[in-house]
């Protein structure tokens, strides 16, 4: 017997006083030599930037650990917590500084925004792993929406855009299937 879940409601436009915090996108310890930048735009169905989205990332540590660590909201500059929260700016752009995950080469991403009754889950693959069941199940054009692109000439920067709706719509994931 499962309890009925509490329904989701939109994050709305006024979360800015509560949820963003300084250093939210600085998951990598300060000055870490292996830090990479992941950045991109969030766009709506007309291609317009979404200036009030909130992106949350969860990922394995470089050693593959998914244990995480406290301290994301008050980063000490040293601990890798595995979690980051970044609002988009007025151009719909976000920047995450992190360390590449060990194990499966992706970051889990949760997108919140006004206009969405429920947040959206997706994945940011920094490389395309052989035998990944999710990627294998997608047609090539859809699969491409989950792949971060290395920035030309920069080994430590990746680009990942989120298209909420329409042409090139990002693949969003349904986690309720197994419940």
């Amino acid at each position: 017997m499962l309890l009925p879940p509490t329904p989701s409601q939109t994050i709305g436009p006024y979360y800015g006083t509560a949820l963003p915090f300084p250093g939210g996108g600085d998951a990598a310890p300060a000055g870490h030599p292996a830090a990479v930048t992941l950045h991109g735009h969030v766009r709506d169905g007309e291609g317009a930037p979404v200036p009030d989205a909130l992106l949350e990332f969860w990922q394995a540590a470089p050693d593959g650990s998914l244990a995480g660590a406290p301290g994301s909201l008050h980063r000490d500059g040293e601990t890798f917590t595995g979690w980051a929260r970044v609002p988009t700016d007025r151009d719909g752009h976000y920047v995450l500084r992190t360390l590449l995950p060990g194990g499966a080469p992706y970051l889990a991403l949760c997108v919140h925004a006004r206009g969405l009754d429920r947040h959206l889950f997706t994945r940011v693959y920094v490389t395309e792993p052989p035998g990944d069941a999710l990627l294998a199940a997608l047609p090539a054009d859809r699969r491409a929406t989950l792949l971060a692109r290395p920035e030309a000439g920069r080994r430590t920067a990746y680009r990942f855009d989120v298209q909420l709706q329409g042409d090139g719509e990002t693949v969003f994931l349904d986690w309720s299937a197994g419940d």
Binding site: G115, L134, R142, G178
Partner: peptide, 30 residues
């Protein structure tokens, strides 16, 4: 303009060991 038009893709089950989404961030007194 923001709600996706395509249905969300069911994640293939059972998921692989080490699937990141089955764990999550931890918080504390810090």
């Amino acid at each position: 303009l923001r709600a996706p038009l395509r249905p969300a893709v069911p994640v293939p089950m059972p998921v692989a060991p080490g699937t990141a989404e089955l764990s999550g961030p931890v918080f504390g007194t810090a």
